[in-house]
Amino acid sequence: MIRLNIEKTLKSGGGNMVLDLELNIVKGEFITLFGDSGAGKTSTLRMLSGLLKPDSGIITVDGTTWFDSHKKINLIPQQRKVGYVFQDYALFPNMTVRQNLEYALQRNQDGDIIEELLDLAQLNELQQRKPETLSGGQKQRVALARALVQRPDILILDEPLSALDLKMRIKLQEYLLQIHKKYKLTTILVSHDVGEIVKLSDCVFELQNGRVIKKGTASDFFGLTKTSAKFRFSGEVLKIVQEDVIYVISVLIGNDIIKVVSDRREANGLKVGDQVLVASKAFNPIIQKI
C-alpha cells in the first residue's frame, strides 16, 4: 500500500494553491490521477518520487517511510523505487538508445536488465541510434524502458502518450498494460483520455485545486456503468457528418471505427476528438460465427 498524506503550498501564476492530499493506493493496481491542468497531479507525483519536498505530512510505501516531516525523513529519489516517464520523453540527446538505458543503471547493478528491456520494448535494432532519429512512439518506448532499468516498484506515467498519434497511442497502451503486469508494478498514470483511462486503470482519483474530490473504478467514475445498456464501449469521435435529417458519427473504438446514427440533439454537443460512450441494448446486435 502506498499512503500519501501531504500538504504543500504551490506557487503558480494565479497565486498560491494548497495541495492537501490523502491518497491510498493499493499495491499492484493501475491507477489514474485525473483533473484539470493545475489541479496538482504532477506535483503529487513529483513529491512521491522525491523530486519535490512536501511542506508537511507522511509518505509510506509498504510500511517503509519515504517522507515524514516530523521525523525529518526524506529519502532521496535514488532511494525510492520509482520509475518516472514524462510526456516529453526526457532522453539524453547525446546518447544512443542503449546508453540512455545504461545511464540509469545503479552502481553495481547487473547489466542483464538492459538486454531484457531492449528485447521487451523491441528496441534491439534501434539500440545504437540517437533519440533525434527516432519517432515519437519509439522515443517513448525508450523512456519507458529506461524507467524500468532500476526495477522500480512504482511506475509513474505523466501524460506519457498525449503527444502521440492515435494508432501509436493504442499500441503503447497495450505495451503499458503488459509491463504493468509483467513487472508487478504499481502504476500511476496522469491522463485526460477517457478511453485510455478506462482501458488501463483499476481506479481513478480526480484532483481539483489540490484535493481529491472523487474516487472510483474507471468505468464507474465516468458513468459507463450507469445505464442498463450492456453493449457499450468508450471511444473517440473521428467524424460527424450530417446526412439528411440525421447525423452519422464515426467513433474509434480500439482499432475499429464504428458508426452511430444520431439526432442533432446529441450531434450538436459533440466535436471531433471528444471521448464518448457508445451504448446499445444487448438485444440489438446480431452475432454470427466467422
Binding site: K226, T227, S228, A279, K281, F283, N284
Partner: peptide, 8 residues
Amino acid sequence: LNEVILAP
C-alpha cells in the same frame, strides 16, 4: 420494450 434503456 427491448429498445428502452434505463439509466439510474
